[in-house]
């Protein structure tokens, strides 16, 4: 099942396209990192997926084909927007009660237990909580809805390292316990390397690359060799980024697998996730992202814990 499916999704504000021609199919069971610089279109994409924004063109669907923003979609998708909005003049207990009344499913005991574990007082007004606490409150409310898809817009940006750890730990535990799929956006890749197993890169309102992290890392390598030959191989291979010195050049190339032959006299190195993302961000439009995203694994096994 695909938890998110978009087809040529686009949004224009006035004359500017915030996102254009975005076709994605995110399968269930992953934590997908949505990365890109500010203004790349991450929030726009998320807003359209959760039904807050109406697309200018294309379609967005969630949870196996439910139109974004439809009642079934609202039921199964929980969203925490940037800065974790809550009603500042309501207490945490009130926010719990409010969320319980606004949704079909709400695990009140889970929410209360979680807030108690985190030391968030129930009677305090939400506006008086710290930034990290507000984020945790918003996450608790989202998780207590027992969604099938959790979408988080830059949730870590204003959190200190400990708060970040706690937040990610909560999200990952929910994945392990309940099988929630997660889409999480950030403009930093480094912190997501250990937690993300699916990657979506946006830059300048375009989708650059999307796929499972393992697949992406297996299909990209850095080829190091003589600078003189770099031009020749650059045209023959699918090169994402070239870095050239006087005598030596590095080509970050996309291959069809680890067993691809290496040009004679060249060395092949594996790529790190951060290197990969940076390369795609610096050289936008180099690949055909939609073709790559459609690479499915021959057998996808689903296992429950």
């Amino acid at each position: 099942m695909n938890v998110i499916e978009t087809r040529e999704l686009g949004k224009r504000y006035g004359k500017t396209w915030a996102l254009r021609d975005c076709t994605l199919a995110l399968p269930a069971g992953h934590l997908a990192a949505l990365v890109g610089p500010n203004g790349a279109g991450k929030s726009t994409l998320m807003n359209m997926v959760v039904g807050l924004t109406v697309p200018t063109e294309g379609t967005a669907a969630v949870l196996d084909g439910q139109p974004a923003g439809s009642p079934a979609a609202l039921n199964g998708v929980a969203f925490v927007a940037q800065d974790a909005p809550v009603y500042k003049n309501l207490s945490s207990a009130d926010m719990l009660h409010l969320t319980a009344n606004l949704n079909q499913r709400f695990d009140r005991s889970f929410a209360k237990a979680r807030l108690a574990d985190l030391g968030i007082p129930l009677k305090k007004k939400a506006g008086k909580l710290s930034g990290g606490q507000q984020a945790q409150l918003a996450l608790t409310l989202a998780l207590a809805r027992k969604p099938r898809l959790l979408i988080l817009d830059e949730p870590l940006a204003s959190l200190d390292p400990i708060a970040r750890q706690d937040f990610l730990s909560a999200v990952l535990t929910a994945m392990a316990d309940d099988g929630v799929s997660v889409l999480l956006s950030s403009h930093q890749v480094a912190e997501l390397e250990r937690v993300a197993d699916y990657l979506i890169v946006l830059s300048r309102a375009q989708l650059q690359v999307a796929g499972e992290v393992d697949d992406l890392l297996a299909c990209h390598r850095v080829l190091t060799g003589p600078a003189a030959e770099a031009q020749e191989y650059a045209t023959r291979l699918t090169v994402v980024q070239t870095r050239r010195g006087e005598t030596q050049a590095h080509l970050l190339a996309r291959t069809s697998g680890p067993a691809d032959p290496v040009p004679p006299g060249w060395e092949s190195h594996p790529v790190s996730l951060e290197e990969l993302v940076m390369a795609y961000l610096r050289s936008p439009g180099v690949s055909e992202p939609t073709a790559f995203a459609r690479v499915q694994r021959a057998t996808s096994k689903e296992a429950t814990r």
């Binding site: 992953h30 934590l31 750890q165 990952l172 535990t173 250990r194 937690v195 814990r305």
Partner: peptide, 11 residues
């Protein structure tokens, strides 16, 4: 997952 903060699929 809770202690190491890694993806459950990795485990």
């Amino acid at each position: 997952v809770a202690t190491l903060t890694i993806n459950p699929n990795t485990v």
